[in-house]
Simulated assay, not measured.
Amino acid sequence: MKIQFLFIRLIAATCLMCSLVYAREPEYINEALNPAKVQGSGKLTWWGLHVYDATLYRSAIHHSPEFALDLRYQKSFSGNSIANRTTEEMKKLGVPDAQAQGWGKQLATFLPNVESGQNITAIYIPKQGTTFYFEGKPLAQIPGADFPKAFFGIWLDQKTSAPKLREQLLGQNCPPPLFQETCN
């Protein structure tokens, strides 16, 4: 009887581990990238505080230009503070002040306040632009090709202020084609 009980516990533990290993990508990301796969993930810390976890998703189709960045916050922030920080990071990458301010104002119109554990996802699809999601629900879309290069550049550009996080997001792979970076 003890052997049967142990065997059942072993099978249950194995099933639990398998379900964790084969966890599916969020449906809205999977639909957009048709199908999605994680390229890399990491966490942003600032002065020792865990700010958010970031995950870069790419299409499973090799060299596909579509990608998504998911940020799962570990601290609470207002939508305005997220928009302001985004503006500052864009300016650090060389985006002209007026352009960064304009995009920042646009972001402030729809970015929600976030609590610890909530996520904001941005998905880039060429010819559509960048679509933002909060907790899997669409928020807004910003069309064009200039915005995504500036926005996603915060994490993926070679001049990012978070080079360790960039390295974790990219792993051993190239950045998305949007960044036109030569890759080994």
Rank of each mutant, 00 (worst) to 15 (best):
A36G: 14
C174D: 07
Y73F: 15
A54C: 02
K105N: 10
P65F: 08
F151Q: 09
I82Y: 00
D53C: 01
K2I: 11
L139C: 09
A150T: 06
S78G: 04
V38Q: 08
V95A: 01
L44P: 00
L156S: 02
L69P: 00
K159R: 15
W155E: 02
Q128N: 11
E66G: 01
K137N: 15
S59R: 05
R72Q: 11
A150N: 04
F151M: 03
L111D: 01
I8E: 06
R85C: 00
Q99D: 08
P96E: 12
S81C: 01
P177N: 06
N30P: 02
F67V: 08
G102H: 08
P175N: 12
P138C: 13
H62Q: 08
S81T: 14
T182C: 01
P26C: 00
N30K: 11
P143S: 13
M17Y: 09
I125R: 14
G153C: 09
P176T: 13
K127G: 01
E27A: 12
S78Q: 04
P96W: 03
R9V: 14
N184C: 02
Y124G: 01
S41W: 13
N173V: 05
A108W: 03
I61L: 10
Y57S: 02
P65L: 02
P163E: 12
Q101A: 08
